[in-house]
């Protein structure tokens, strides 16, 4: 789970001391999180640009960093702000009412909310075993990209483990009960994708 980075104060010292290898290490360690946050708020096309701009402003303001939060959360907050200023028009925005509608008629449950179908049993019980097949990774990527804008963004912001729920609410401009719903629907979708892959061996 750990990024195997030095502790914050050490890392900051190294960055301020112009240590390129420390900079490389931290860029590598946080790239995945940064990429998915940037791309879900803006788009894949400019995600790397947003990341670059973020790092530049991080490096510029690093001498003033006061350590009230971890370095990573500070960086991720700067990233989210940077991305928000370049947010695209929401092309695939689906209203929460629509999300609720499809949930209320979800065919997996009967009229009193009991399971009518059941998920299959999966071959693995750890992420690295489960995610061994590249087809599954690509399949998950594809379906996450197909999620409605805010569902995708909520999931990505959350799964980068960098934001509290209320920060996600602020970034997405939704209430906390909405963000819970968005997260559940998104995770449930990915779960169904994995389940189909486990059953049929294809996307």
């Amino acid at each position: 789970m750990s990024d195997k980075l030095p502790a914050d104060d050490q890392l900051i010292k190294q960055l301020l001391n112009q240590d390129s290898s420390a900079f490389q290490q931290v860029m590598d360690a946080w790239y995945g999180s940064m990429y998915y946050v940037a791309s879900s708020i803006t788009s894949d096309a400019i995600a790397d640009e947003v990341i670059q701009e973020t790092w530049i402003s991080v490096l510029k303001s690093l001498p003033k960093f006061e350590g009230r939060s971890s370095l990573k959360s500070w960086v991720m907050r700067i990233l989210a702000n940077e991305a928000k200023t370049r947010r695209r028009k929401e092309s695939r925005n689906v209203s929460l009412e629509q999300i609720e509608d499809s949930w209320s008629t979800d065919p997996r449950f009967d009229s009193v909310g009991h399971w009518q179908t059941t998920t299959s049993s999966w071959h693995a019980d750890s992420p690295d075993q489960l995610m061994q097949a590249d087809e599954l990774k690509n399949c998950i990527q594809k379906h996450i990209d197909l999620l409605p804008e805010k569902q995708k963004a909520a999931l990505m912001l959350r799964e980068t483990e960098s934001y509290e729920l209320d920060e996600i609410c602020n970034i997405l401009e939704v209430t906390s009960s909405n963000v819970r719903v968005l997260l559940h629907r998104a995770r449930d979708k990915v779960l169904q994708v994995i389940d189909r892959f486990e059953r049929e061996g294809k996307c």
């Binding site: 590598d28 980068t160 779960l191």
Partner: peptide, 21 residues
């Protein structure tokens, strides 16, 4: 389902961390 929900969540995190610069 609950077990799979947890595993799904962990797997998405795993997938996010796997992206290379």
């Amino acid at each position: 389902y609950v077990k799979q929900m947890k595993l799904t969540d962990a797997s998405v995190r795993y997938w996010v961390r796997g992206r290379r610069m």
